[in-house]
């Protein structure tokens, strides 16, 4: 059952220097209980997509076009009080940098209880009990003591667990996780991934997992969307996208990930730099960095469907050309 349906979302920043088209025509659907991975280089518009869903795009940015349907409601023109009622209760977000997410001058219990009370009456005892339970769920030892601590008394991994606990407080229908493990070391990252996967499965929560690390997404997501310069250039099941990438950019991402390569082979590299959203090349935005580019690429490609739901936005999709392990 479709929970979230985004149609041609365009979120632009109208800065003094010009219009930054951070998200420029993104569409995807998400079912209840499904995990969608969004992958892309820095600046490709992943976070802005997440903030657009939350209704938290900072000025001078705004949603210029498109619709975000969540459980039947279009969030784009939802009045702020209704949007606020959804935030935290039905849609929660976990941020990129755990060191910056919690307010440094407020105790953890203050920050958790206020999140509960934003959406209903909670007695002190009930609220504390709920906080303890959720902190326990995300693997924080002795929650009672930890509730009385300030964020600086926690390690980065523990802080991110607290942020995740806050996101889970109301058992939301949708969690947007914006690279929640990027800032953490690998073992902590694996633990948190494992726990989140378990919790999401238990509650049938839908999740958008933003990352620039395909390896993380491969073990977690049902489907993957690859973003480049504000657009989804490829989307499909995790198996399709990771093992049979059709877009040269996706293939490049996979080729440059160490874990995906046979030992001793050289890592490939996508040449050039990600374009600035201020001055995108006309036509396909990836064209200047692409080995397969031809004259046709001067025209922006439409999305085309390969087998199943595998969607790609490219004039020369690499159907079957890429075989993992040997392509490098």
């Amino acid at each position: 059952m479709t929970l979230l349906s985004i149609e041609n979302l365009k979120t632009h920043f109208f800065t003094k220097a010009g219009v930054v088209k951070s998200v420029d025509g993104v569409s995807f659907d998400l079912d209840r209980g499904e995990i969608l991975g969004i992958v892309g280089e820095s600046g490709s518009g992943k976070s802005v997509t997440g903030f657009s869903i939350m209704g938290l795009v900072d000025a001078p940015g705004r949603i210029a076009e498109g619709s975000i349907r969540f459980d039947g409601q279009n969030l784009v023109d939802l009045p702020e009080p209704q949007m606020r009622d959804l935030r935290g209760r039905r849609i929660a977000m976990i941020f990129q940098d755990p060191m910056m997410t919690l307010n440094p001058v407020l105790r953890v219990d203050t920050q958790m209880i206020e999140a509960l009370r934003a959406h209903g009456r909670w007695s002190d005892d009930d609220a504390r009990q709920r906080c303890r339970d959720v902190l326990g769920q995300v693997g924080i030892p002795s929650p009672e003591e930890r509730l009385k601590s300030y964020p600086h008394q926690f390690s980065g991994g523990m802080r991110q667990r607290v942020a995740i606990a806050i996101a889970l407080l109301h058992q939301p229908d949708l969690i947007i996780a914006d690279e929640p493990t990027t800032a953490l070391d690998v073992t902590i990252q694996a633990q948190i991934l494992f726990e989140i996967q378990k919790l999401v499965a238990e509650n049938n929560t839908a999740m958008i997992w933003v990352t620039h690390d395909l390896a993380v997404v491969a073990g977690l997501a049902n489907r993957v969307a690859v973003m480049y310069a504000g657009r989804i250039v490829e989307m499909g099941t995790t198996d399709e996208v990771v093992n049979r990438p059709a877009h040269p950019y996706t293939a490049g991402l996979i080729g440059s990930a160490p874990s995906r390569n046979a030992r001793g082979t050289r890592l490939t590299q996508i040449r050039g730099m990600a374009p600035l959203p201020m001055n995108l090349p006309t036509g396909c935005a990836f064209q200047p960095r692409c080995d397969h580019a031809t004259g046709a690429c001067a025209v922006s490609p439409d999305a085309s469907t390969l087998e199943g739901d595998h969607l790609v936005r490219c004039h020369h999709p690499l159907v079957g050309a890429f075989d993992r392990g040997t392509a490098a």
Partner: peptide
């Protein structure tokens, strides 16, 4: 513009609480 203020909003807090507590307590320093 700091993350913790945005996170406070993401929790569904009213602007009065976001400004009156999260922002004000920090700028008090």
């Amino acid at each position: 513009n700091l993350d913790y203020v945005k996170f406070a909003r993401a929790k569904g807090l009213r602007p009065r609480r976001v400004i009156g507590l999260h922002v004000l307590k920090n700028i008090m320093i």
